[in-house]
Design a protein around this nucleic acid. Structure first.
Lengths: 204, 204
DNA sequence: GAGTTCTCTGGACAACCGTCAAGATTTTCC
DNA sequence: GGAAAATCTTGACGGTTGTCCAGAGAACTC
């Protein structure tokens, strides 16, 4: 009770603990993937013991889904700055492409985890609700970029948000795999690809 | 030795056995995914016992990689007919879009397995070589469609094979997930999306 | 048809998994 | 400060996994 930050209720503390545990789990999940990250390994890479997981989460799937949702929350506003600070169409596109590249460099483990989970949801029905929600959020995020870009260019988007997201996601996924394989030039390629693709997404 | 087909060497028979085992394994893998398909489950869904796997394959990963390569071989010529029979640009595009939809309907388990394995290769380095090879083969397959399409239309492709494949793969993956979630209209959407996208892939 | 090689079975193994619960430890509250 | 509630540790459990192996069975050679 010595600091001003100690004014939290027990429920808040409980949530805070869940977040901390999920944070540790995300690191391990990003390193090992969904299948090979055991609860013991997750706990080992954290300050907790392996039994505490079932105090804060019902089971492994509950933990995973919570982790994924938490990751979504930190991820969804990554391009807000790009949108806010852009003043020209070309400037927006280049800042966006740079940010995509930066994302791959800085957060490759998190994103391979995301693709892992999305693939798992094709088999595991209980993952689908969370995955579809996150996918929708990412689509919205991309759409904020594209509609802003269209506004700056004085044109209309030529595609639905869903299609635009699907196209960009395809390129991003390809670049992520290439980056993890330490292929030369994939990041520059991605930047160039995005700069070239974005005008195509607008109606002439 | 009563039939004409019995003229195989022991080595051939060994390979044939490997193929049969891999065939069974592919079915189970398509149903359960890479992580949850155990060797026992794979053997149970086949005519073999679980011990025989290590007679024909070094370990689980060896089996998986062999399966993936075998799947590639059956998959890589799926669109050859479309390319061969097309006589007009629009006809090619529509036949191609139809075939993509048919692929999702008929072979959803195989394709979710493919995306599962590609995601796993982001974590497991030993999978990458096979995955990159297959990805390249699929890219070549797509490129045969697109370059034929460009020829029929009397234009030039506006993108590299890599980019074109990335874009289409993004849409395909999205549609596959939607199909597995039993979303209404995803297949019709995919068809329309492809028909709309293909002209964009050509230079004006 | 005996002997050799190939093929396959089924059980055993050590390791690991998710889950749980009993009890130790800490925190909270009066 | 002591009771009550919360948080956490530790060890155990039943089950599953990949792998290995001794030996049964089949196929082939001479």
């Amino acid at each position: 009770m010595t600091t001003a930050t100690a004014r939290r209720t027990p429920a808040d503390k409980h949530d805070e603990r869940r977040r901390a545990l999920a944070d540790s789990a995300l690191r391990t999940l990003g390193e090992l993937g969904y299948a090979r990250a055991s609860l013991r390994e997750i706990a080992n890479n954290s300050e907790f013991s392996h039994g505490v997981v079932h105090y804060y989460f019902q089971d492994k799937l509950d933990l995973i889904v919570y982790c994924v949702r938490q990751y979504k929350a930190t991820c969804v506003h990554r391009y807000d700055g790009v949108v806010a600070e852009a003043s020209t169409p070309v400037g927006l596109v280049e800042a966006f492409a740079d940010k995509l590249v930066e994302t791959i460099v800085d957060e490759a483990p998190m994103h391979r985890l995301w693709y892992d989970l999305r693939s798992q949801s094709m088999f595991e029905e209980s993952l689908r609700e969370a995955v579809l929600q996150i996918d929708q959020t990412l689509e919205d995020m991309i759409w904020r970029v594209i509609s802003t870009y269209a506004g700056l260019a004085g044109k209309e988007p030529a595609m639905t948000p869903h299609v635009a997201y699907g196209l960009l996601d395809g390129l991003f996924q390809q670049a992520l795999l290439g980056h993890l394989c330490r292929r030369e030039g994939v990041l520059d390629d991605l930047r160039a690809q995005v700069v070239e693709l974005m005008p195509v997404l607008l109606a002439p």
